[in-house]
């Protein structure tokens, strides 16, 4: 299952709700303002880091660059993708849940 988050962790409870619904073999894509969850030293980044290693993390590169988040600071487990790669992710996973 691919979970897609799009809201900033600061403005919404969905970030936490989504993490509660995330299974250990699933994937999470951060889109739009959800990429603020990757701000270095933020509490959300810490909670993303402690997700089981089997959870795959993706983030939309254009959304990160648009918001001035430095790519160098991102944890290694976050894979940056573009829209064609998002299409592939949606095909690879049998179900897509947007939060």
């Amino acid at each position: 299952m691919l979970h897609i988050l799009r809201h900033s962790p600061g403005s919404e409870t969905r970030f936490a709700s989504c993490l509660r619904g995330l299974g250990p073999q699933q994937s999470l894509l951060l889109l739009e303002d959800a990429v603020y969850g990757l701000l270095p030293r933020s509490r959300t980044l810490a909670s993303l880091q402690i997700l089981p290693g089997s959870v795959r993390l993706y983030a939309m590169e254009a959304d990160i660059l648009a918001r001035g988040i430095a790519l160098d600071d991102l944890p290694e487990r976050v894979k940056l993708i573009d829209y064609p790669a998002m299409v592939q992710l949606c095909i690879y996973h049998s179900k897509v849940v947007s939060w």
């Binding site: 739009e32 829209y83 064609p84 998002m86 299409v87």
Partner: peptide, 9 residues
């Protein structure tokens, strides 16, 4: 985002 995704599809 939806338009970019739709174009990529």
């Amino acid at each position: 985002s939806a338009l970019s995704f739709a174009k990529a599809v």
